[in-house]
């Protein structure tokens, strides 16, 4: 698998560190009910198909990336910089 970093271009999978599902971008506020933290930390849609997840371009530009990809075919269709996403 290769990912296309918006800053560095198409790179080998080995340059990236996988963190987990997009859920990690939705950190609950302090004092949020436990169920929200459980959702954030543990529960996952885990789709067989298109998903969005977080990758860190460790051996490249050190940016966090939000990758849209297919978990069945390993094709990735979009890669965004997390830093440039509107909240």
């Amino acid at each position: 698998m290769r990912l296309t970093c918006p800053l560095c271009g198409e790179r080998d999978r080995r340059e990236f560190y996988y963190y987990g599902a997009e859920d990690y971008l939705h950190r609950p506020s302090e004092g949020a009910p436990l169920a929200e933290w459980d959702n954030y930390l543990h529960l996952r849609d885990n789709p067989a198909g298109v998903t969005k997840d977080l990758w860190y371009h460790e051996a490249g530009c050190s940016q966090w990336l939000l990758v849209t990809r297919n978990t069945v075919t390993h094709e990735s269709s979009a890669v965004e910089l997390v830093a440039e996403r509107k909240a």
Binding site: D38, N39, R44, D45, N46, A48, T71
Partner: peptide, 18 residues
């Protein structure tokens, strides 16, 4: 490995990633 899909049929979201 298919636990999330089958559990979703019962409205559940599991603490599982495949």
């Amino acid at each position: 490995g298919r636990s999330s899909q089958v559990a979703a049929m019962a409205g559940m979201r599991l603490p599982i990633e495949s």
